[in-house]
Write a protein that binds this DNA or RNA. Structure first.
Length: 278
DNA sequence: ATGGCATATCCTATATGA
């Protein structure tokens, strides 16, 4: 089973690229970020034509997330990150697919920092840490992925010098990332490629793609029950080299779900623990 | 310190991204 995360940077402009990628790589699950489109503009029919069921949460102009599943419909669990009813930005989706809980997120960029946008980023991260703690221990296999807008270490960027003041590299952002991982999550790409510079984003400026001046900011995290299933991981870099490409490339894991341990005795309502209804 | 490029919308200008 292949699961990918892909920041499309505008699903209306990116639809041909998205369809080409789906056709060639055939991910079983695709988590998308930055739809930059309202719900009514989501290309449901074209994706269905391509063999994918979908859940999405759009927003005019900015943000927007979706979960695609090949040959099936993802089962919705929640469409917002708990913890702040006043937050109206579409940045979180959670669904069940083939017995797996999949969380798709688009963490705030946070620039410029310091300032209100950076404060929002950190506050959102705190809510994520709280929610992720419950997901981690839910007893279900969970994969949490998306554009985290965090460069975890200086090894995850071509050269940190010109990015030192960027929100993606700030100690506060990285401290949140570390606290999240301290819950036990496995950072799939880094776990499998400990000595390799892996990039998932190359900005549009100064031929950064041509020079492979990239950042690793799109991540896939596995909780304890799911971790033994991890087989492979990588980045579909060819997608970034296409014409009219997003500045992000799809990042993926393959899982062998046959390795899932037998479930502990079933609870009365197993789904509730994943939903974490207050 | 700034801008380079791309996408979006209230579109020949501005906000946002990373």
């Amino acid at each position: 089973m292949k699961i990918a995360t892909y920041n499309v940077n505008g699903i209306k402009s990116r639809l041909p690229n998205l369809l080409a990628w789906l056709a060639r790589e055939q991910p079983d699950v695709a988590c998308l970020q930055e739809l930059k489109a309202e719900d009514g503009s989501f290309p449901r029919a074209q994706l269905e034509e391509a063999g994918y069921g979908a859940l999405w949460k759009g927003q005019r102009s900015w943000n927007g997330v979706a979960i695609l599943a090949r040959g099936t419909d993802p089962v919705p669990v929640r469409n917002e990150l708990p913890g702040d009813p006043s937050d109206d930005q579409s940045r979180y989706l959670e669904a069940a697919v083939n017995g797996l809980v999949v969380a798709c997120l688009y963490l705030p960029n946070g620039n410029p920092q310091p300032g209100p946008k950076f404060a929002y980023k950190l506050a959102w991260f705190e809510r994520l840490i709280t929610h992720a703690d419950g997901l981690y221990g839910s007893g279900h296999p969970v994969l949490m992925c998306g554009d985290f807008n965090v460069v975890p270490t200086d090894f995850d960027i071509y050269n940190p010098r010109s990015w030192k003041k960027d929100a993606l590299l700030q100690p506060e952002s990285r401290a949140c990332w570390e606290r999240l991982l301290a819950q036990g999550w496995v950072d799939a790409l880094r776990h499998q490629h400990p000595d390799e510079a892996v990039f998932t984003f190359w900005d549009y400026f100064r031929q950064h793609w041509e020079h492979n001046s990239g950042l690793r900011i799109d991540h896939l995290l596995l909780n304890r029950p799911l971790a033994p299933c991890l087989v492979a991981s990588g980045v579909d870099r060819w997608v970034r080299g296409e014409t009219k490409a997003s500045d992000h490339a799809p990042t993926w894991v393959t899982l062998d779900l046959a390795r899932l341990k037998k479930k502990a005795p079933a609870r009365k309502t197993p789904a509730r623990s994943a939903r974490q209804i207050p």
